[in-house]
Amino acid sequence: MPNRSWAERVDDELARRGVPARSRRRLMAELRDHADDLTDGEGLTMTDDVLIARVGEPTVLAARAAEDYRRARWSSRHPLLAFGLLPLPATVLAFAATVLAFGVAANVGAWLTVGDTDLLPRPAMVALAYGLAWGVRFVPFVLLAVLFTRLYVRGRVSRWWFAAAGAQVLTVAGSLVSAIQFRDDPGQSTWTLGVAWLPVPLHDGWALPFLSLVGWAQVAQVAVPLGVGALMVRAARRRQAVLAVPC
């Protein structure tokens, strides 16, 4: 059984370097087995000095372990798939998931308050519709920014792969059009939804806007996920800088 302080130091160092709890538990269990084998096979008493000399210095062991777990990540071994091909399908999925989640939340909310969505008062319906129309402009892209930034930071792949994924997500974010037009007559309200480089169905026909619909809203749609990603990268860099300072 390893000396408790040595084992705790290894576990702490692994946690500081972002090694997942499940991997930490497995590694610590095998290190305990190894220490037991050293005791049984070589008659060693497990002091801190023996553990450091034979099994490894906690910071060095944790650093090597973190590097190996990073290399074991799927996104690190297949950057073309993760950062080159995944972003666009993931964008579609994130968009659909956002609409679905919003619809479920609206239905549950209506069921709990008035019993049916058809019974919702008009101001509440208007608020829900605007919430959905604005939500799809930002929520999917913020989720994608979090996802791909985490993959980049944890996988430590080339920044160009991260840029490739970001370019795809932000291009869609910057060209997404989502606009509600409310009318008093029942059934006459419209929700215009599309991508600015594709024909957009409008209430009076089709439009080929060719980016003419892109305005300040689309600039915000790019800026928000870009800002989230930048903040996450900055926070990760600061954590790594702290780890690099010798204690």
């Binding site: 290894v10 991997s23 497995r26 590694l27 095998e30 290190l31 190894h34 034979r54 099994v55 490894g56 210095e57 060095v60 062991l61 090597r64 372990a65 590097e67 190996d68 777990y69 290399r71 074991a72 071994r77």
Partner: peptide, 15 residues
């Protein structure tokens, strides 16, 4: 460090 073989083994297993 003998402990460093385990992360390598875990990576080989993941691969």
């Amino acid at each position: 460090g003998e402990g460093s073989v385990y992360p390598v083994l875990h990576r080989l297993e993941a691969e």
